[in-house]
Amino acid sequence: MHFDPLQPGAGAIRSQHYLPATGRNVLWGRLPCASDEAVLEVESGDEVTIDTLSHEGILEDQGRDPLRYFAGHGVDRHHVLDDAIAIAASDYPRDRAADGPHVVTGPIRVRGAKPGDLLKMTLVEALPRVPYGVISNRHSKGALPGEYPASLGTVSVFSSVDEDPDGRRVGVLPVTPGGPNVVRFPLAPFLGIMGVAVSGDTRPHSVPPGAHGGNIDINLLTAGNSLYLPVQVAGALAYVGDPHFAQGDGEVALTAMEASLRVTVRFELLSQADALRQFGALVGPLAETREFLVPTGMSLDLDEAVQHCVRAAISLLGARYGMEPHLAYAYLSAATDFNISQVVDIVKGVHARIRVADFAGVPPR
């Protein structure tokens, strides 16, 4: 399948605010902190169309030359993004040993945001910028670091985009290298990184997620769904990155189908009073879809991440519906799935899917 790439400034741009992934609009390997200056300022309720860049194809272990790298997979120059070429060729001061791989776009200041508020980030639209992606497994990374990759080098698997008989876009992977048989899987574009700046003047590493959000890799956050984040600094200083075309819960190989997106995100503020009334005292990210409330838990230890998520879910049900803790605990055991968001980002993530329909007869507090 081929379609025209969404080069910087070209093609569909949904909102009046547009932020390309060029120049001072990006950080590479680090996330914003309180001392960073915003590259855009918006009002609560505004939508911003943002270009995001995948790190796959621009990293050093892939040659830091996306033109050459993607040409090796049969991609012509027309379908390689100009902003990817530019950042790979730049002298951006990224320390390969100390910094993460991700390119993030932002930060965006939301007028009036202050610590104690919640910032709601809704993915309004997610448009693929290219018709391909990459899935990588790197040495001593992933769920099976002692087993894969079998060699010392990076294994990066190229995945093309095609259409199924119903016209839906799918990812395509070979069953054997160079063989005729392929596996096809549905695409569900989302942002692996959505976050707010941390306090202080030290930019966090881009890989481990936390209370600030960041690299949470929750694949439910597709178009139409939202993430709530506790604001840590004045203006929130929000950012996005780590675009995916698809990801399974766990993201076991290290990356999923990583590929650049043009997204439109709506930014809305909830005051501290409204936030407490709707969700209780959130200490970390909370996702929301049409079907589910999705509290999260994170820790270096997966067992502890599950425990944090269960506690967050009990607290949420108490704050929103007045549910007694022992009854919430019982309900969660009987009716709620706890999913592994990812196990590959140093800090492991777990999220719960609480069905909103189950509480149709219970008025929110």
Rank of each mutant, 00 (worst) to 15 (best):
L6M: 10
S15H: 09
P20E: 15
A34Y: 05
D36H: 14
E37M: 08
E41A: 15
D46E: 11
L53M: 13
H55I: 00
H55W: 10
E56G: 01
Q62V: 03
G63D: 07
R64Q: 15
Y69A: 02
A84L: 12
I85P: 05
A89M: 05
Y92F: 15
P93W: 13
R96I: 12
A98H: 12
H102C: 02
V103P: 08
T105R: 11
A126P: 06
A126Q: 01
P131S: 12
G133D: 02
G146I: 03
G146N: 14
G153D: 08
S159F: 07
E163F: 15
P165F: 04
P165C: 00
T176S: 01
N181M: 13
G192Y: 07
S199I: 00
S199T: 10
G214Y: 05
N219E: 07
V231K: 06
V233C: 11
A236E: 06
A236N: 09
V252M: 07
T255Q: 12
L269E: 04
S271I: 02
Q272H: 11
D274I: 00
E288S: 05
F292A: 10
Q307D: 13
Q307C: 04
C309M: 11
R311W: 13
S315I: 01
G318T: 08
G318D: 05
A319V: 12
E324V: 02
L327N: 11
Y329M: 14
A335G: 00
V343D: 06
D345A: 12
V350E: 10
R355D: 07
P364A: 09
